[in-house]
């Protein structure tokens, strides 16, 4: 029972990070209908910026805020300069551009922060061996509690932004019909750029959280997190923010349970596969994810 609770709790914290990154994918997909393959690498790059600023002597929490602002500018700038003009010429090209960004950012980070063993990343939360509370026998580490609280709070804010503000309304209108939105005076360009920006800023935060948990920063920081996040986004449905959160949390928990209970047969390496295979199964039954809406096409 204690073990189960422990796995579920650890799983929730990791799941919250996956959900954050997955939400980024969903925000971009809903806004523009494109898959941002570089989501994870953008997050990784922002995390390096955060590390760098922190290294220059700025407190970590401030560095994270600056990093998120940088992320917003990076995302919005990319959309406004490259993505928009490529999308006009060939819609499939956006995916290719995001792959190019993936390669470019990864390579750039390797070139700038060139050290094979990586860098030590500070944690936003107390991270000593004894920093935990015992609840029902399970160790609830402060850093995991912190991650969970921050991630859930940000998600809550996002939902408020989407559903209660004028900006959220504009975003939803652009997502459902860009031309009509433009005709009734919604500044769709600003909306699209900011949805990329918001996604990248969330990536920056999730990168800082992952870095804090790992304690170490390398250019491959976000790759496996991105795979989990993309699994979560697919599972939940690419256009459903709620789905991304639920799927992210359940993938996090499932991963811990599988690795914890059947380690001998599966092994650490293959716990990723369990998540991926479960997506296959779900997509076979529901081709647009658990909570995604089916696309109706006019011929």
């Amino acid at each position: 029972m204690e073990r189960l609770l422990q796995y579920i709790f650890d799983g929730l914290s990791f799941g919250a990070i996956y959900a954050l990154l997955a939400l980024g994918l969903v925000v971009v997909f809903r806004g523009t209908g494109h898959l941002n393959f570089a989501q994870g690498e953008m997050a990784m790059f922002c995390t390096f910026i955060i590390w760098q600023i922190n290294d220059w002597g700025v407190p970590l929490i401030l560095a994270v805020v600056i990093g998120m602002v940088f992320g917003f500018l990076l995302g919005a700038g990319t959309e406004a300069t490259v993505i928009r003009s490529v999308a006009k010429k060939s819609p499939g090209g956006v995916f290719v551009v995001s792959i190019a960004l993936f390669l470019g950012l990864n390579s750039l980070a390797t070139m700038i922060w060139d050290r094979a063993e990586g860098y030590t990343m500070g944690s936003l939360f107390p991270n000593k061996p004894l920093d935990f509370v015992r609840v029902l026998g399970a160790e609830w580490r402060y850093k995991f509690i912190g991650v969970l609280v921050v991630a859930l709070a940000l998600m809550g804010l996002l939902f408020l932004l989407f559903s209660k503000t004028k900006f959220g309304l504009a975003m939803r209108s652009v997502a459902s019909n860009p031309e009509s939105a433009r005709l009734v005076g919604v500044p769709s360009g600003v909306v699209l750029a900011s949805s990329w920006g918001i996604a990248a800023a969330m990536g920056a935060l999730s990168g800082a959280l992952v870095g804090g948990i790992n304690g170490q920063l390398t250019p491959s920081l976000m790759f496996s997190v991105f795979i989990y996040a993309s699994a979560a986004a697919t599972l939940g449905g690419l256009d459903s923010p709620g789905g991304a959160v639920i799927a992210g949390l359940s993938i996090g928990i499932g991963e811990q349970l599988v690795a914890g209970y059947i380690p001998g047969w599966i092994g650490q390496d293959l716990k990723l596969s369990v998540a991926l295979i479960s997506i296959f199964v779900v997509l076979l039954v529901k081709p647009s994810g658990l909570f995604g809406s089916l696309k109706v096409e006019r011929v």
Partner: peptide, 11 residues
Amino acid sequence: RGAYLALVTLA
């Protein structure tokens, strides 16, 4: 289809 296919083949 589409983006879902990209993610599944990525898997």
